[in-house]
């Protein structure tokens, strides 16, 4: 399987803080890759490289290469950043639907990118809500505010919102950490369903979750990538002592 994303010797500084240190890593296409590690280890920062979300933070310096389908996304023109972000969807830690109807939340990405064809938008919203396993629960109340949904439904709505513009990569930053176990289970099932079509990178604090949903796992510690490999190997037979300590719960 080829690598969808590849980073080569990436370093990232916030002001004086060295947040990512020489990270080289290839993320295979149509798979789920989990990034684990204790708080502040750089895994979220690393995730946010891929849609250039770190650009929003002042005094951020990035060196090295971040290749997406072979193209260095830090060498593209400023006008291409929107196109990059259309290609890389993102789901956040806390469900954050917009203060709009359920329908308009999913349609947002289409409208913001200039699509006006009403029937196309309707079709896309329905298709995406099916994909996010939310259609049956919301089909009768598409005009209702998204805030009327439960936390778990809101998070699946946020996933639908990301899917609606047909990205090829989905970044998930601890997508289930604010949810109850049942909602978490639904999100995990969904991740499993989606990986046939998308390359998914998920940051998680939950070791069991990483074990359940991912094909590959990368362990970050103090801004460095300690170990990367097949999830089964990382969890049963890690080659680094730090990884084993973390996974067995001895720190972090």
């Amino acid at each position: 399987m080829s690598n969808k994303i590849e980073t080569i010797d990436v370093n990232l500084h916030y002001g004086d803080f060295h947040a990512l240190k020489d990270i080289s890593l290839g993320i295979p296409e149509n798979s789920v890759t989990a990034l684990i590690g204790p708080s502040g280890c750089g895994k979220s920062t690393y995730l946010r490289l891929f849609n250039r979300m770190n650009d929003l933070i002042p005094e951020t310096r990035i060196t090295g290469k971040v290749l997406l389908d072979g193209e260095n996304i830090y060498k593209i023109k400023a006008t291409k950043i929107d196109a990059l972000r259309r290609n890389v969807g993102m789901v956040f830690q806390k469900p954050n639907p917009f203060p709009k109807s359920i329908f308009e939340n999913v349609a947002y990405g289409l409208r913001v990118n200039g699509i006006t064809d009403k029937s196309f938008i309707e079709g896309q919203v329905e298709k995406t809500l099916h994909q996010a396993a939310l259609w049956d629960e919301v089909k009768d109340k598409l005009k209702k505010s998204a805030f009327e949904l439960s936390g778990g439904q809101q998070q699946r709505l946020c996933i639908a919102r990301a899917l609606a513009i047909e990205p090829s990569i989905i970044l998930m930053d601890e997508p289930a950490s604010a949810l109850d176990p049942i909602s978490t289970g639904k999100i995990e099932d969904l991740i499993f369903e989606l990986k046939s079509e998308f390359t998914i990178v998920i940051v998680t604090h939950n070791m069991q979750q990483a074990g359940r949903v991912s094909d590959y796992t990368g362990f970050f510690y103090l801004g460095s990538l300690i170990e990367f490999g097949k999830t089964r190997k990382i969890f049963t037979n890690p080659s680094k002592q730090e990884t084993e300590n973390y996974i067995s719960g001895r720190f972090g």
Binding site: N51, M53, L56, D82, A83, R85, R86, V88, G89, M90, F92, Q93, K94, N96, F98, P99, K100, Y108, G109, V112, N113, C158, R161, A162, I165
Partner: peptide, 27 residues
């Protein structure tokens, strides 16, 4: 207004102005 609302809009390719008009101001 929580910053993740802005980020969610940017992540969908939204410009700053569009994000302010459609997401931040209504909240």
């Amino acid at each position: 207004v929580d910053d993740t609302f802005r980020q969610a809009s940017y992540a969908l390719g939204g410009s700053k102005l569009y994000t302010i008009r459609k997401v931040v101001l209504p909240i």
